[in-house]
Design a protein around this nucleic acid. Structure first.
Lengths: 168, 168
DNA sequence: GTACCTGTAATAATAATATTACATATCAAG
DNA sequence: CTTGATATGTAATATTATTATTACAGGTAC
């Protein structure tokens, strides 16, 4: 099976002017192939959830998502939203932003990357970047005290270019 | 004014056997001096909150804290706890662990450090370490898209030495 | 075929976490 | 001793997350 995006690409240059609709199309296509490979189902709720995340420049809260799903007749209970989100996260199609208790679509699934997130505190926009470099240092620190790493969260809060201008 | 702990010391070797009561005393003394310098007030609620955080090896949730404050007649509403916690975090005396929606005392305040946290998913114990090395890479990434960094969160989830043994 | 197991989805109830608003009290500077 | 900033008290509400339960569809072993 063929992969549409090369690894370590600024696949979707978030916070920078670009044709985002094209990014959305590309990720959705990649995703279709990916779930087919994995033998799991991209059900209507799951597909729509991913689309909603993809179309939002900002992280989406579980209940914001639920409101939208409800409006479209796809379900009105928290669990609907959480399960869809859990599924997407579990399969690397979305990321949970701990800082916001909210979610974003993964703009380059399938890569098994170590993502880091730049979160604008003004508009909530989130840019996904890679943080391979930060990892080694953490591994050393963990080894020193015998801590066994399972998951690393790197989240940066600040101001995106747009909000710097507005605030200034 | 004199500082009691040299920078970049394993001031409190969390997750490792040591005399923690001594750590608590040291940090409280440091804190007294620090707030005096800053011209802010370490009120009873704030002081007691810090002590509670210091004495707990695990991160403390806002409502766990509130229960304890309430038992001691220091306040019964969520706001009380959140206000005290906000104060401590704002002044670098405590850290918020995003992963847990909970808080830990800073074991070496005043250093303007870049903390990283090792969080045991089994016992919730939290070890504070420094992650200076991870920072540079993030700064470069941010510069590339014009993002202005204000705060960096690095949280590692896994198993502490003790819980590895128990689980194994 | 029917009894059993599994995966998926939907519903309901509850628990945990967090914010807002406003009134009152205290402190510290002028 | 009064004013403005800081801190506290209280209430109500909002948001996020977990747990338990029910339903149904598809496969498979006897």
């Amino acid at each position: 099976m063929k992969q549409k995006t090369p690894p370590n690409d600024p696949a979707c240059p978030a916070m920078v002017q670009h044709d985002h609709a094209a990014c959305v199309r590309r990720v959705m296509e990649d995703t279709e192939l990916l779930v087919a490979d994995a033998g799991v189902r991209l059900t209507p709720v799951r597909r729509r959830t991913l689309e909603i995340l993809l179309e939002s420049p900002a992280a989406v809260g579980a209940y914001d998502l639920l409101k939208r799903l409800d409006a479209e007749g796809l379900g009105a209970q928290p669990t609907i939203a959480y399960r869809a989100l859990d599924f997407l996260v579990e399969h690397g199609l979305a990321h949970r932003i701990e800082r916001l208790n909210a979610f974003v679509a993964c703009m380059h699934p399938r890569e098994g990357h170590k993502p880091a997130f730049m979160i604008c505190r003004a508009c909530r926009a989130v840019a996904e970047t890679t943080a391979e470099a930060t990892d080694a240092a953490l591994q050393r620190g963990a080894a020193a005290i015998g801590f066994q790493i399972e998951r690393v969260v790197v989240e940066v809060e600040g101001l995106c270019p747009k909000c710097q201008d507005v605030t200034a």
